[in-house]
């Protein structure tokens, strides 16, 4: 009996050793950085590594930088295995052949996502819903007698001169500012000339490229208002900063953040398993609780319904998303180079 036990223990340790050996895989994951990467690691990455023995190496940067790296690596080894992008640059990356279609048999959580989060062509889904609106320092607005912003155009208020921030064109949010301004002036994604003239008259303090930097400027009192996203704004509100995040009457913008497997990865199956983890209700809820971006897994609907205080901070359902204006991604991508050029010539000065 003793010998049998010993043999069994030996066999077990051998099996463990070989599994560990076979699973010495490290996935390189291109994420947004800062607090967001931290929360993805906390609620997704570490759980995944514990369960599978696969290590995660985070590579931080803006989605635009990740896209640039993907495009630059065409025909060579993939710079990372998994990439977090936004809907618009996901479409560009897919068009360039840099993304793989997912296998629903591995990414089983795909079946639980809202239809709006599914990618029609089978690429990576939206892993969260978020929104763009106007964030402003309610305390300073009251002191200065500036009315609460009701329209995108209210940022042109004379008292806000050099006291508000716009996103730089290198930031995805800049396209929302362009489209929002166009719509406030009766245009749309395909008719933005009036918007650029109007944006050219604006006098922002600066054009931000980093949310952390913008946050510091809100805190220092240099910036009183900005076109920003719900997650980072609520982050400041929850810390007790007198910020308010509002949707203008023309409509706040509904946005999707995506996650994909990169073409040419050596570990496609492991990468899909990781994406499945990111779409897991537990990971999504942890994420939403840490930085309030909306989960796309519909299994969480009853949980969010039970916590309205949390759910109010993001588009918590397809219905909530539909109340927002979702810009036409194709129009954004078709016009992007032209917009950068007009931005350079008219807005940035």
């Amino acid at each position: 009996m003793k010998r049998l036990l010993l043999a069994a223990a030996g066999l077990l340790s051998l099996t463990l050793a070989t599994t560990a050996g076979a699973q010495q895989v490290t996935l390189r994951v291109a994420c947004y950085g800062g607090l967001f990467t931290e929360s993805q690691q906390k609620f997704g990455g570490s759980l995944f590594s514990t369960r599978t023995g696969i290590k995660i190496e985070w590579i931080d940067g803006n989605p635009e930088d990740h896209l640039a790296k993907l495009i630059a690596s065409r025909g060579r080894a993939a710079p990372f295995d998994i990439v977090y992008l936004e809907e618009s640059n996901q479409a560009r990356a897919a068009e360039a052949g840099m993304l793989m279609k997912l296998d629903p048999k591995v990414v089983t959580n795909l079946a639980h996502l809202y239809p709006q989060a599914q990618n029609r062509e089978g690429y990576g889904p939206a892993m969260l819903f978020w929104s763009v609106g106007i964030s402003y320092n309610a305390k300073v607005f009251a002191e200065q007698g500036i009315p609460e912003p009701k329209s995108w155009l209210d940022l042109w208020h004379p008292k806000l001169e050099r006291r508000f921030a716009f996103p730089d064109i290198a930031q995805g949010t800049a396209t929302d500012l362009i489209i929002g301004t166009a719509r406030a002036l009766g245009g749309n994604e395909r008719n933005t000339d009036a918007a650029f003239d109007k944006l050219g008259q604006a006098k922002p303090l600066y054009f931000y490229t980093s949310s952390s930097d913008l946050r510091a400027k809100f805190r220092a009192g240099d910036v009183w208002a900005a076109v920003w996203n719900n997650g980072r704004s609520w982050g400041m509100i929850d810390e007790g900063f007198p910020l308010k995040f509002v949707y203008p009457t023309e409509g706040g913008h509904g946005k999707l953040s995506t996650i994909d497997v990169v073409t040419g990865t050596k570990h496609p199956k492991e990468a899909m398993m990781f994406i499945n983890q990111v779409l897991d209700p537990l990971t999504q809820l942890g994420q939403a609780n840490q930085i309030p971006y909306g989960p796309t897994n519909k299994l969480l609907a009853p949980v969010l319904a039970a916590y309205p205080d949390l759910a109010q901070k993001f588009p918590a359902s397809p219905e909530a998303l539909e109340k927002l204006y979702v810009p036409d991604v194709k129009a954004v991508n078709d016009n992007y180079s032209k917009w950068v050029d007009q931005w350079n010539r008219k807005v940035k000065k």
Binding site: L67, A68, S337, V340, N344
Partner: peptide, 11 residues
Amino acid sequence: FVAQQIRFVLN
């Protein structure tokens, strides 16, 4: 400007 053309416009 060079950085913008290469990193964002991808021209």
